[in-house]
Design a protein around this nucleic acid. Structure first.
Lengths: 250, 250
DNA sequence: TCGAATTTGTGCGTATGTATC
DNA sequence: GGATACATACGCACAAATTCG
C-alpha cells in the first residue's frame, strides 16, 4: 500500500473498464453497486466511488441515483445537419433533422425581454443595452436533452409585431426565416461559427454529462440584406454529436 | 444545508466563476487557496477541493502544485473560414485565409502510399486495403503550428497522373479542386463534419497545448459527381480557433 | 544552502441525504 | 415503508512542488 503501485481506485476502474470493453458488461447492464465493489475488491466506499467517477468521466457509464450505475451505449456521434435551411415545409434545421430521423423530438422554450449584453449587441449590430427578445430552448430526443439553444432578436425589428415571441402566435415554432418573412424581412444569409469548450456545470447538468465533458458551440447569425436579425448559441455534447455541413463547390 | 438547494461545491464554484467572468479575478491572478475558501465560505476541505475541480474541468483556472490556482487567459478565438471554396486564384481555404489575414502562413507536408483503413475506405467509398495516397500537413502561422491535416486520396483515381502527389509537380500545393480539374475530375460538392474531443498527446505536442486541451476535428470529403475524391481530417486547437461557415438561405 | 511554511494533489474512511424500486 | 444505491459532505493524512526567510 505504500510503494510504487497503482492507486486503488485506478486498479478497480481499470478492472471494470476491461470488463466493459471486453463485453462482459454489455451496454444497459448494471455495474456492481458501490457496496458490492467494496466487498469484491476489499476497498473503502470512497475508492469504489472514485472508480465509478473515473468511468463516468470517460463517458463509459452513467449513474442513476437510487437505481444503479449503467453501462452506456457506445456513442457513435450523430450528425446535426446545418446545411440548406430550406424554408420548404417551414421547419427549422432541428425540426427538419427530427423529421428526417423519424425522431420523437420535443422542445421547451422560455422567452423574456432583456437588454443586449456587449457580446449580443456586437453580434446583432445594435447598441449594448438595447432591448432584445431572449429565448432559451431545451431540445429533447426520446425525452433526453440533447441540445441547448439561446437566441436573441432585436426588439426594434420584431417589437409590436405578431412574431415578437418566437414560440407564440400563428407562426410559433416555425423558424426564423418564416417568421421574419411574415413581417416582410427576407432572410438571405447565415453565418455559423463552430467552436468547442468544456461544458459548464449547468449545461452538462441538463445535457446529462459530467463536469469536464466537451460541448460544441455553434454561434449562428441570420442576416437580411446585411443586417443581423437573429443570433443564437447552440450547444450540443461533443461525445454524441457532430455538426455537418454540405456545400457546393463553385 | 439539508433542504432543496444546490450542492455546496457547486455554490462555491458558481460564486468563484462569477468573480472570474465579471473580471473581479482577472487572468493570471491567484484564486483563494483551499484553506481560504474553507474559511470564507464555511465549508469543508472536500467541498473547496471539489469546487476548484469544477472550475479546472471547465478550463477557467489551472492549478500549479505548491503555488496556487490561477485564472487562465482566454484568447479570443480566431476564425478558420470554411465557406466558399472559391477556386479563383487557386488557393485552398487555408491559403485563402492566410492571404486575407496578410499572414505569414507556411506549411510542411509528407506523402506516402498506404492501404485504406476501414474508416478511410468507408469515407472514400473504396474497399479496405485499397491503395491510397496519404498526406500529412502541419500548417504554421508566424512559425507556430496552428493546424494539422491528414488527407487521403484514392490512387485508382490519381495514380499515374501528374497530380498523384498533392504537393509536387506544376500544380503542387494548389488545392484539391484545381488538381482534380487538371485530370478532368470536376469537384462539385464537399461535406464537412465538425466534432470535438480532447486532443491526443501527440497532436497537442505539435500544436503546443497541454494534455486535456480540446481540439476541433473537421472531417472533410470532396465529391465529384457523387464520388468521393478526397477526404481529410483537419485538427485545430479549440481554445484558439473557431470554424466559420457562411451560407446562403434559399 | 538549508529548511520551514504554504499550497496543490491524491488517497481514504465514514456519515448522511435522497432517489428509486 | 423498507431496502438498495447513488450523491454529497466532512475530516484526516501525506506526498510533491513552490516560496521565502
Amino acid at each position: 500500500m505504500t510503494f510504487g503501485e497503482q492507486p486503488a481506485y485506478l486498479r478497480v476502474a481499470g478492472d471494470l473498464r476491461r470488463k466493459i470493453v471486453d463485453g462482459a458488461l454489455p451496454p444497459h447492464t448494471r455495474l456492481p453497486s458501490q457496496a458490492r465493489i467494496r466487498e469484491e475488491y476489499g476497498v473503502s466506499d470512497t475508492v469504489a466511488l472514485e472508480a465509478r467517477k473515473v468511468l463516468m468521466a470517460e463517458g463509459l457509464v452513467e449513474g442513476r441515483s437510487g437505481s444503479g450505475t449503467y453501462v452506456r451505449e457506445r456513442p457513435v456521434p450523430r450528425r446535426v445537419s446545418r446545411s440548406g435551411y430550406r424554408p420548404v415545409g417551414g421547419s427549422t434545421p432541428f425540426r427538419q433533422e427530427q423529421a428526417e430521423a423519424g425522431g420523437r423530438g420535443t422542445w421547451e422554450s422560455r422567452s423574456e425581454q432583456t437588454e443586449a449584453s456587449v457580446m449580443v449587441a456586437e453580434r446583432l449590430g445594435v447598441k449594448p443595452g438595447d432591448r432584445v427578445m431572449c429565448t432559451r430552448y431545451v431540445f429533447r430526443e426520446a425525452g433526453e436533452a440533447m441540445m441547448l439553444s439561446t437566441s436573441w432578436e432585436p426588439l426594434d425589428l420584431t417589437g409590436r409585431t405578431p412574431v415578437m415571441l418566437p414560440e407564440e402566435g400563428p407562426l410559433g415554432g416555425m423558424g426564423v426565416v418564416e417568421r421574419m418573412a411574415a413581417i416582410e424581412v427576407v432572410v438571405d444569409n447565415v453565418t455559423e461559427e463552430v467552436g468547442a469548450r468544456p461544458g459548464l456545470a449547468e449545461e452538462l447538468h441538463v445535457l446529462g454529462g459530467v463536469p469536464g465533458h466537451v460541448v460544441l458551440v455553434v454561434q449562428r447569425t441570420f442576416y437580411a440584406s446585411g443586417r443581423p436579425v437573429e443570433t443564437a448559441d447552440v450547444v450540443v455534447p461533443a461525445d454524441r454529436y457532430r455538426v455537418a455541413y454540405h456545400l457546393p463547390v463553385r
